[in-house]
Simulated assay, not measured.
Amino acid sequence: MENWLGLLRIHVKRGVNLAVRDSCSSDPYVVVRMGKQKLKTRVVKRNVDPEWNDLLTLSVTDPNTPVKLFVYDKDTFSFDDKMGDAEFEIGPFLKAVKMGFQLQGLPDGVIISKVEANRQNCLAEESKIFLSNGKVVQDMVLRLRNVECGEVELQLQWIDVPSSKGL
Results as ranks from 00 to 15, higher is better:
M1C: 09
M1N: 13
E2G: 11
N3P: 00
W4V: 01
L7H: 03
R9V: 14
V12M: 08
R14W: 00
V16A: 11
V16K: 14
N17C: 04
N17S: 10
L18M: 01
D22H: 13
Y29T: 10
V30F: 07
V32Y: 04
R33A: 05
M34N: 09
K36A: 12
K36Q: 12
L39F: 05
K40F: 04
V43K: 09
V44F: 10
N47S: 13
P50C: 12
W52C: 06
L56Y: 07
T57V: 15
N64V: 02
P66G: 07
V71F: 13
Y72E: 14
F77R: 14
F79C: 15
D80V: 05
K82G: 15
G84F: 10
A86D: 14
I90H: 03
F93E: 01
A96S: 11
V97Y: 01
K98H: 11
G100C: 00
Q104E: 10
G109F: 05
V110P: 01
K114Y: 08
V115M: 03
E116S: 15
E116I: 11
A117L: 03
Q120H: 14
N121D: 05
L123G: 01
A124I: 01
A124Q: 04
S127K: 04
K128V: 04
K128T: 05
F130Q: 08
N133I: 05
K135T: 03
V136D: 01
Q138C: 13
L142V: 07
L144H: 10
R145W: 08
N146Y: 14
E153C: 04
E153L: 05
L156H: 02
Q157V: 12
V161N: 09
S163G: 06
K165D: 04
K165S: 08
